[in-house]
Design a protein around this nucleic acid. Structure first.
Lengths: 237, 237
DNA sequence: GAGTCGCCTTGATCGAGATCAAGGTTTTGC
DNA sequence: GCAAAACCTTGATCTCGATCAAGGCGACTC
């Protein structure tokens, strides 16, 4: 009883608050004893925009903010291969063959746990392993979506798809027919590096979407839409 | 004892033979009782080239052959988002949001298991769940590699990278400095759909790699290299 | 052997998006 | 508040890869 109350006062509710938003929130998998252990081992971090997130042997709950994952070619060409929006779970159980950099795009709040603890718990609780697998498969799906976009969409379809992705992550429950406005957490350079375009092309396509009335550019970093459905028509899929 | 011999005579050794080649072969995770149960529930299939593999509620060990995974845009543009080479493990534990088609590129031999059995075993054995997660993460890495290629590489870098990938999958243990020859299990159309190019560009880039001595085109579907290292230099990463 | 079909190669031309260039706007630092 | 820096937009031009077009090659049929 008191133990239960202690847990709720400690750091753990933070991970739960962030992951309860998702149907598949990781925290649901834990029992009281495990939550207590996690609370003791967890640590909170505030990371300013632009900072690289080191692979420091922890898993983290992304409480707020946006993180980009990038891969670089040897001559400096850069490709963004994924984003994490709150309340995603960060950190991977096994090493990647080629390095991927993670960088905070906005100010970011993290709640971190030593890998050893989570890995041990995953061994005890198959359900946790299943959740991690489910998340990873969702990431794989998303990566494959973007492969199709990178390989086969035109510049304007790419930009429309990107805006739609950000809109959906800003408000996952939003009705597709109603207006929405949201911040772009990325510079034009980042958008270009994600879409395999140049900043000039991104800028031009945004201008075109504005002039044909699909979007309104409130300011350089804020967009508003009459409806998501209108953007969907321009995505090519 | 006799049970053990029965297992080796049954279908299961086939899955083991195929997956023992990998350090992380799934079969290593099973004990004798589980292998017996899997043997009883498994079924073998031969699938001719060009056939679509339906998502029929099974997981399969790919014993031989090559499978492509594709995603289509609404107007028919196609992107290949991944390959499976023997001895990969096929089938995914959860539904994808957007449909992905799997199609045999060559004649394919499969050993299939009902999902329910594997899923139950995964609950009993955290190690199996970990292996599935590891495989999925490897696929994610690969997908991200190709995102970087699709977004940021030139046509000739894409073709070189593709040839290297096929060479590596043909003989994973091959020494990078020694000559190698291999079959392309894909048509030019498939290569183009994988690399986000047209068949004409693929053909031209192959001709260029031939005329500058990097590759020898034995016939339309067979390539030989003096060394993989020479190709690596042309991959841009 | 002639004809057809599927697949591949090569050449000529075109165009979407890159590159080069200039100037505008917003942020930062003093 | 002013200067510098970072970021963004727009225009002019160029280029890589797409598109259009023609023909080659091998496999299969009759």
């Amino acid at each position: 009883m008191t133990a239960r109350r202690d847990i709720q006062k400690a750091d753990v509710p933070a991970i739960c608050k962030s992951c309860e938003a998702r149907q598949d929130g990781l925290c649901r998998a834990f029992n009281a004893r495990q939550l207590a252990e996690l609370a003791k081992a967890s640590s909170r971090h505030q990371v300013p925009a632009g900072t690289e997130l080191p692979d420091d042997g922890t898993y983290s709950n992304l409480l707020s903010g946006v993180v980009k994952l990038t891969r670089n070619l040897s001559d400096g060409r850069q490709q963004i291969v994924g984003f994490h929006f709150a309340p995603d779970f960060l950190g991977r159980p096994f090493e990647a063959k080629k390095p991927i950099r993670a960088e905070a795009l906005t100010n970011v709040a993290l709640c971190s746990f030593p890998k050893a603890i989570i890995d041990r718990m995953a061994n005890e609780m198959p359900e946790l392993g299943r959740l991690l697998l489910k998340h990873t498969l969702a990431e794989l799906d998303e990566a494959r979506d973007w492969m199709a976009a990178l390989g086969r969409k035109t510049a304007s379809e790419k930009v429309a798809s990107f805006l739609l992705m950000v809109a959906r992550n800003t408000d996952p429950a939003h009705h597709p027919a109603s207006p929405i406005s949201f911040d772009l957490p990325l510079t034009r350079t980042d958008i270009a590096d994600f879409l395999g375009l140049t900043i000039e092309t991104v800028s031009r396509e945004l201008s075109r979407l504005r002039s044909d009335g699909t979007i309104r550019i409130v300011n350089k970093r804020q967009i508003s839409l009459a409806s998501m459905a209108q953007l969907e028509e321009r995505c090519g899929d």
